[in-house]
Amino acid sequence: MPDRSPSLASRLPTLVLVCKRPAIGHGKQRLAGSLGAEPTFVIAERLLDCALEDLENWPGATVIAPDLAQHRNWASAVAPLSCCQPQTPGNLGERLNALDRTLRAAGHRSLVFIGSDAPALRECDYRQVRNALDEVDTVLLAARDGGVVLMASNRPWPDLTALPWSSAALGQALAEACRGAEHSLRVCGESFDIDEPADLDHALRELADDPRPARRRLIHTLATGGGDHP
């Protein structure tokens, strides 16, 4: 288990998981259109498990941020060692800005945001981000489709409301917004997230030798077509 002593945690960034509670018809609809609702739901659960695995292994403070306030009890149950801070209404940019303000007001000084659909994130990626935050204001980890899989900053985010979320232009637009707010910025490499059916094949290849338990369960689910719900 990671060392979560207060003295260490206070020196490390806080990892924030921005997520939805998996449900039939809620999220990952581009996958559902190809795979069907039930297999997509199972895959969404496995993807969330991977992100929860990262929360559990983070050496500092952690936060889970479900998209709906009524999912607070669920979120607290699946991430019992994390603070639960539900998102507020609005588009993704508005929700991230509001979440960022709330957490900074509560004393979190450096925040690392991830979603629940980037299972290829590894400890080496997180370590690189933590090291970079010692040297620059803001750190991004790019997605191969033009988006981002991780966004971290020692400073409040600029206004994210009008950014082209869920598009190939997001990564560049986010970087430009940060530079426009006079953030020193570093892009620490590239990974991928799961949006389209083709991304599942990529995950099978990239995670084939990953020993982490949640990743092994995800690989088994993908290899069986998402039909192994308990």
Score class of each variant (00 low, 15 high):
residue 2 P to Y: 03
residue 6 P to F: 02
residue 7 S to F: 06
residue 10 S to A: 13
residue 11 R to E: 14
residue 11 R to H: 13
residue 12 L to P: 05
residue 12 L to G: 02
residue 13 P to K: 05
residue 15 L to P: 05
residue 15 L to N: 08
residue 15 L to A: 02
residue 19 C to R: 11
residue 21 R to Q: 13
residue 21 R to W: 06
residue 23 A to R: 15
residue 24 I to K: 14
residue 24 I to N: 13
residue 26 H to T: 06
residue 26 H to P: 02
residue 27 G to T: 07
residue 27 G to S: 06
residue 31 L to T: 12
residue 34 S to C: 13
residue 34 S to M: 12
residue 38 E to C: 08
residue 39 P to S: 08
residue 39 P to M: 02
residue 41 F to M: 12
residue 42 V to L: 14
residue 46 R to Q: 14
residue 51 A to K: 15
residue 53 E to L: 10
residue 54 D to T: 12
residue 58 W to K: 11
residue 62 T to C: 13
residue 63 V to R: 05
residue 64 I to K: 06
residue 65 A to H: 07
residue 67 D to A: 11
residue 68 L to A: 11
residue 68 L to R: 15
residue 70 Q to Y: 02
residue 74 W to E: 09
residue 76 S to D: 08
residue 78 V to I: 15
residue 82 S to P: 00
residue 83 C to R: 15
residue 83 C to M: 13
residue 85 Q to K: 04
residue 87 Q to P: 04
residue 88 T to M: 03
residue 91 N to T: 04
residue 92 L to G: 03
residue 97 N to D: 10
residue 97 N to C: 15
residue 99 L to W: 10
residue 100 D to I: 02
residue 102 T to Q: 13
residue 103 L to H: 00
residue 104 R to A: 00
residue 104 R to T: 00
residue 108 H to Y: 04
residue 110 S to M: 00
residue 111 L to V: 03
residue 114 I to M: 07
residue 116 S to G: 09
residue 117 D to R: 01
residue 119 P to G: 09
residue 119 P to Q: 07
residue 120 A to W: 00
residue 122 R to F: 08
residue 123 E to N: 10
residue 123 E to D: 13
residue 128 Q to Y: 00
residue 128 Q to H: 08
residue 129 V to D: 04
residue 132 A to Y: 03
residue 132 A to L: 10
residue 132 A to F: 03
residue 135 E to W: 01
residue 135 E to V: 00
residue 136 V to P: 00
residue 138 T to H: 01
residue 143 A to L: 07
residue 144 R to D: 15
residue 147 G to C: 06
residue 148 V to L: 08
residue 151 M to S: 02
residue 152 A to G: 01
residue 152 A to M: 04
residue 153 S to F: 04
residue 157 W to A: 05
residue 157 W to L: 08
residue 160 L to S: 03
residue 162 A to D: 13
residue 165 W to H: 11
residue 165 W to G: 01
residue 166 S to L: 08
residue 167 S to Y: 10
residue 168 A to V: 13
residue 168 A to P: 14
residue 170 L to M: 06
residue 172 Q to R: 15
residue 172 Q to I: 09
residue 173 A to F: 07
residue 175 A to I: 03
residue 177 A to K: 06
residue 178 C to Q: 11
residue 180 G to S: 11
residue 182 E to G: 07
residue 184 S to H: 03
residue 186 R to Y: 01
residue 189 G to H: 07
residue 190 E to Q: 15
residue 193 D to V: 02
residue 196 E to G: 01
residue 196 E to K: 10
residue 196 E to L: 14
residue 197 P to E: 05
residue 205 R to H: 12
residue 206 E to R: 15
residue 208 A to S: 13
residue 212 R to M: 10
residue 213 P to Q: 12
residue 217 R to N: 14
residue 228 D to M: 12
residue 229 H to N: 13
